[in-house]
Write a protein that binds this DNA or RNA. Structure first.
Lengths: 193, 193
DNA sequence: ACCACAGTGGACCCGGCGGTCCAGAAAATC
DNA sequence: GATTTTCTGGACCGCCGGGTCCACTGTGGT
């Protein structure tokens, strides 16, 4: 399948349209017809660009969204070298999810994990990269003498990832962002102590 | 709808069978026909006991599972009055989810949240009760002088809930229980410091 | 013994959704 | 400008799954 410039544009339009739609609705209930309508395309095009149908399209959306998640935290996430930087990162995460409300792109991915095998790998990769950045940040703080050397950077980074994921999940379920804030603040406190 | 003893038994059989099945499979893909087959019943019975169909049945399952989640952590969760008790609780949570692997009853509930309104309330209530017990534990430890009074019990309890939820979610996505352990250990460490 | 109502089984209906197919428009290649 | 390839539109199909219906079988009360 060789794509022309026009073809690539259409394919991208489908992915981004589907992503936006999945972000704002129950992923399980989204149909190809919805996406067709939203993106102003036709069934023919969807299956032209994604021969394996829904699964392939959703996987492409998952990859697209996974990249967005980390991009939205930059440049803060990439340079956690001072307490002020940590606070800025914290604020950016809170702000992002606060704005997004209960509609989480990652949630859409997660719920696909069970069904499609490739999705698990996308989520896994995202989580790894995320945790890596946090761990780097902790280690840099340790080198700068700002965090106690006894702290296990890998372990605390893992706790951050868990706390954020859980906080977002609670946000999705209850609409309250308190848990996300509590998790971030408590763990940053822990680093400071 | 007056239920005889037999009726109640059948109704319960449906709920428990459905719960077990939902626990071990992708919730979104489970059909009434699956449940009918598993529980050895018929369509007629399902709609006899759950007139509103799938939604009502799933809600009943959700309530059933929500109770189980807390019951499985007892008696530890109800008496977090010493460091040893906290460790036992930690171990029981890890053991439970380790045994359960990537199949999480709460996950099934969560993915229903978007669709059915009642599910949100069930999850919300579960999370509240859970967090309440943890908070009580922290406060008791403070009263006993084992935890620094400066710790905000409510906030740290919220962080625990977030950490556990996130840890379980990572477990579901990647199959690794490391994040759950890291979250619990880091937060308990935080209390100890 | 009878009757009323709970319990049970399963055939059936119908709408929705993923997926197929093909014909025609646009565009690249020569 | 002819031909080949890509792109687009939409009619159509088949299956699957939730829900309905009704006939039949217990079962408990009087």
């Amino acid at each position: 399948m060789a794509l022309t410039a026009k073809g690539r544009a259409t394919r991208q339009r489908i992915i981004e349209g589907a992503a936006a739609y999945l972000r704002s609705d129950d992923p399980a209930g989204v149909t190809l017809d919805d996406i067709r309508a939203i993106t102003g395309t036709s069934k023919g095009q969807i299956f032209h660009y994604f021969p394996d149908g829904k699964e392939e399209l959703f996987l492409a959306v998952a990859r697209f969204e996974a990249d967005r998640v980390l991009d939205d935290q930059q440049p803060h996430l990439g340079a956690l070298t001072s307490w002020a930087a940590w606070d800025r990162w914290r604020d950016s995460v809170i702000a992002r999810y606060h704005a997004q409300g209960r509609n989480c792109p990652l949630g859409a991915l997660m719920s696909q994990v069970g069904s499609t095998p490739g999705a698990a790998e996308v989520v896994s990769s995202l989580l790894n990269r995320w945790q890596f950045h946090v761990r780097e940040g902790i280690e840099e703080m340790q080198e700068a003498g700002l965090v106690r050397p006894g702290v296990d950077a890998g372990r605390v980074a893992a706790a951050f990832i868990a706390g954020i994921q859980g906080g977002v999940q609670v946000l999705r379920s209850t609409g309250s962002i308190d848990h996300l804030e509590a998790a971030l603040d408590t763990l940053i406190d822990h680093l400071r102590s």
